[in-house]
Design a protein around this nucleic acid. Structure first.
Lengths: 224, 224
DNA sequence: TCGTACATCGTACGTCGTACACTGTACTAG
DNA sequence: CTAGTACAGTGTACGACGTACGATGTACGA
């Protein structure tokens, strides 16, 4: 084992692409992607700024690698169950992961070529759908619909001004309602009032819409 | 009419918040939001960089205002038709607008408080759903599902490496297939092959999923 | 022992957002 | 008519950014 290899494995000393990207993800999670700079990242790793460029060609490549790490965290659809359960599991996992790394959503828009983890993920999802009896074109439609829902939901969730369900009630009273003149926004007031009373949980909201989508896709399938 | 008012209206001379924000949107459309800097924006307006700060507190506020301009461009659901047609119209409009301003999607993630146009939009959509007989909670679900689909689709569309339907075939052959070893990604290869042959149009893909979603929402309604 | 590849760093350049102090002009009050 | 004030815009400067470039020391094969 060469010195180089030893360092790539070591966790407490010596840099590596893995370590650099992992720390970048941690930093973005903690402080937001806007606060992620090469200098700050290097400081967090106890290194000089320019050392990072040995492992990453430029910041763009670092961001691409970060996105791929996020995709790696998303569960692949399990193969042993029916397609709806499999898709539900992977969608729920995707939402959780994207809620953990909200910066990832905003990053996707700007980078065009998918990383290896993203490709593996899409292959697994397509495989699941095809094996469940979706014709090629219908599998494509299902892929777009499901991914649109997952990403769009995560995007909306990321732009909510509160973090957990129990913060919603306070938030609704303190922030939303005062901003919404009842005569101009009667329906939004109605909504806010009902939601503040009933409580609000993004996870439940997600599965509700997800199940609607899954049920809507069922007829596109040619049962095997 | 005071000199100040004259200037706010004039289009060729004198700045105004409207003009500043409009030029910022144009710049972001043309060159991407990453290329939008206060200095470049000022140069495009024939002004000094610091002049912009008379109309905008800081860059964050500029970005918020840009997002609100985008929401203003989206058609509100028409009131004279059935709810599905109304929702379809506004969803199609939203997708078109977001395709025209792809940077807007990535921006939404980071800013939490909705602007006035965004609120007006949401109010109109909620009103349409409530009047169509959706109970309050079901209208909320419908709102989330529809917006998730629209935003998520726009997000995916923005990260496509080609711009129009007719570019897809070339793109598929030149870029996708060489990157996808058939033994590792059999299903993605199958997909790419079929899509390259059949052609691919994002607008059609969008309405396909949209109609599925609308149909899935119908049963949540209590017919009036 | 020497050369080469590896891993890291310091310096420097141009650009960024924006704080601050400054101008000139238009309008208003006395 | 004048003095003061609000408006609209500017120039300079500071600290942070991404990164090109070149220098450094160290490990290892010849």
């Amino acid at each position: 084992m060469s010195e180089r290899e030893r360092r790539q494995v070591a966790s407490d000393a010596g840099l590596s692409k893995k370590r650099v990207v992992a720390e970048a993800v941690r930093l973005a999670d903690r402080e937001g992607v806007g606060e992620l700079s090469m200098r700050r990242l290097a400081r967090a790793l106890g290194a000089g700024a320019m050392s990072l460029y040995y492992y990453v060609a430029n910041k763009e490549e670092l961001l691409d690698a970060m996105i791929d790490v996020v995709f790696e965290e998303i569960e692949l659809p399990p193969e042993e169950t029916d397609w709806q359960s499999a898709m539900r599991r992977r969608a729920v996992s995707a939402r959780q992961v994207l809620a953990r790394h909200p910066w990832a959503i905003g990053l996707m828009e700007s980078r065009t070529s998918p990383g290896p983890a993203s490709l593996r993920h899409r292959e697994a999802v397509t495989a699941c759908l095809r094996r469940a009896g979706f014709p090629v074109l219908m599998a494509t439609h299902a892929n777009w619909l499901l991914d649109s829902y997952v990403y769009g939901f995560a995007l909306q969730e990321a732009s909510l001004p509160f973090d957990a369900a129990d913060e919603f009630a306070d938030m609704a009273e303190d922030v939303f309602l005062p901003q919404l003149p009842p005569d101009e926004f009667p329906y939004l007031n109605e909504s806010a009032a009902v939601l503040a009373a009933a409580g609000y949980d993004p996870a439940e909201e997600f599965t509700f819409g997800l199940d609607l989508v899954l049920a809507a896709l069922e007829p596109l399938r040619v049962p095997t």
